[in-house]
């Protein structure tokens, strides 16, 4: 899934730190998944736009641009049969399984609060205009 990884890299900024990339790579399918991105995705304007050079933006805009690109990556993978199947599988989990996962996610999230701030800053940093 070379294109998927490249997409991630551009979505996160060319010089995004590795741990941030790993974090977002979890949104993407394994290399064996046949329909990870729409076919001929490079001809889809909004998807191809993610591969355009990362602009240098003021701080506030850089953060917004980062979130926008991240949302489009999520959408690109969701809008495939693979994404739909993943969503269906998650939706069909039992309430008990969901509750355990939700509590687990909550604990991890709480632990990650300081990291989230750091990750957020580091991920929009490559998009930010330097003086």
């Amino acid at each position: 899934m070379l294109e998927a990884r490249a997409l991630q890299r551009y979505a996160c900024g060319r010089r995004a730190p590795r741990f941030a990339l790993r974090r977002y790579l979890r949104l993407l399918p394994p290399a064996s998944a046949p329909l990870a991105l729409p076919p001929a995705w490079w001809r889809i304007p909004w998807l191809a736009a993610l591969f355009e050079p990362v602009p240098l933006l003021p701080k506030s805009q850089a953060s917004r641009e980062f979130q926008r690109r991240l949302f489009l990556v999520t959408l690109a993978t969701e809008l495939t049969p693979w994404g739909a199947e993943q969503t269906r599988a998650a939706a069909r989990r039992s309430f008990a399984s969901f509750a355990v996962r939700a509590i687990g996610c909550g604990i991890v999230e709480l632990g990650l609060v300081p990291w989230r701030i750091a990750v957020h800053r580091l991920t929009w940093w490559p998009l930010r205009a330097r003086r």
Binding site: F71, L79, T87, A90, A91, R101, C105
Partner: peptide, 22 residues
Amino acid sequence: LPTELYGRIPLLRPFGRRIGAW
């Protein structure tokens, strides 16, 4: 589309996506 919800969940995107999908 469930993506309408993902962005509104105040969790990291992978977690938000799993919980949102359910």
